[in-house]
Write a protein that binds this DNA or RNA. Sequence first.
DNA 1: AGGTAGCTTGGACGAGTGTCCAAGGCGAAT
DNA 2: ATTCGCCTTGGACACTCGTCCAAGCTACCT
Lengths: 206, 206
Amino acid sequence: MSKANDQTTGPTARPTAAARGREVRRKLLATAAVLISEAGWNAVTTRTLAERAGVRSGLVHYHFESLPALLRQAALDAMRPALDEAVSVFTAAPTPADGAEALLAALDRYTGRDPESLLFTEAYLAATRDEMLRARLAEMTGRFRARLAAGAERAGHRDPEAAATALMAVLDGFLLHKALDPGLSAARITPLVRGLMTDPSKGEPP
Amino acid sequence: MSKANDQTTGPTARPTAAARGREVRRKLLATAAVLISEAGWNAVTTRTLAERAGVRSGLVHYHFESLPALLRQAALDAMRPALDEAVSVFTAAPTPADGAEALLAALDRYTGRDPESLLFTEAYLAATRDEMLRARLAEMTGRFRARLAAGAERAGHRDPEAAATALMAVLDGFLLHKALDPGLSAARITPLVRGLMTDPSKGEPP
DNA sequence: AGGTAGCTTGGACGAGTGTCCAAGGCGAAT
DNA sequence: ATTCGCCTTGGACACTCGTCCAAGCTACCT
């Protein structure tokens, strides 16, 4: 008897139908994330999406309930690992200030170069007008904020949650401003951003 | 002989054709700014715009070259006075830190309440994909940044331009985050934002 | 062998889109 | 009274949009 996953065929054999379907879903989601950043949330159409993904347009509504549902999932799927990596970068640093500096540096490298640079901003704006997206997105960013706050608290910050909120605001704000003016330097604002995570009540002069 | 602006007619008389035209332009621009914030830049259509403005749809392309051109002008016209007022608020404060606090407080009052709350964010994103808008917008925000930097410099900040950049990033970032989560408190991050405009090299302990 | 289930195709459908324009209206100037 | 110039109207135009589906395909199961 042969199991469903038997791959005893040749090296370049045709994948099973289910596997091809999975690949179509993956490509559509990945391409949608890029297009959202490139053209804007409301400018992603089924036809351009299918074309860029190398997929026939009829497949979009076979694999997904609707275009808005696809965009929601694409944005969330692309943001989750990005936020996870941000958490890693932050928690790997010895102090919250170093963590903030590392996050800013990572963001600086990311902006402009990455085809999904503006995905976060687009998703925030879209969430403003989409109840379901707002709930799922708020949960993800809430977890991120909690991680930042935990780091700030461990370092003895007076108001850790405020520090986390402020840090997230600078990061997303800087991302947006730098997209508009690539001349902006993350290095220049680094000392100021470090200051955000350093409790003002416990200054440490040289 | 009668001058063009003779308004010797009754109290509720029909205005001159030119005046009505000016009013149509004004209404379209004002309504467009609201709709951009409400529905998103790419979701503003000629027909919904005309309807919300109380104007026949055929007038849109009589008074404006194209819908994109109208949106550009609407955004810039609405942002200019807002930025001017922000400059006033900032420069009226005795110190840059007080100015930053005042700006944040004003932003906090503005967010959510105002129907144009998200206009700035939408305009930034649109400028990313529209060369002409980017140039005009960069000029306006550049002037604003220069005013903030001048204030920081007068107070002896080590890197005034960086301070201005960081302050603008927090403001726009906080605006966006608060639109998503109205529970965010501007008051909580105020001391941290004040710190941005206070040169870290010259701490002033009580 | 035939049957089944899932993926794929290409196009149809109606509702929307930005843009344009012939025709009409009306106050101001002559 | 007539002309002039600008504003206004309502709809036509040629798209593009999201969604849907009948028909075909092919790997797998019995």
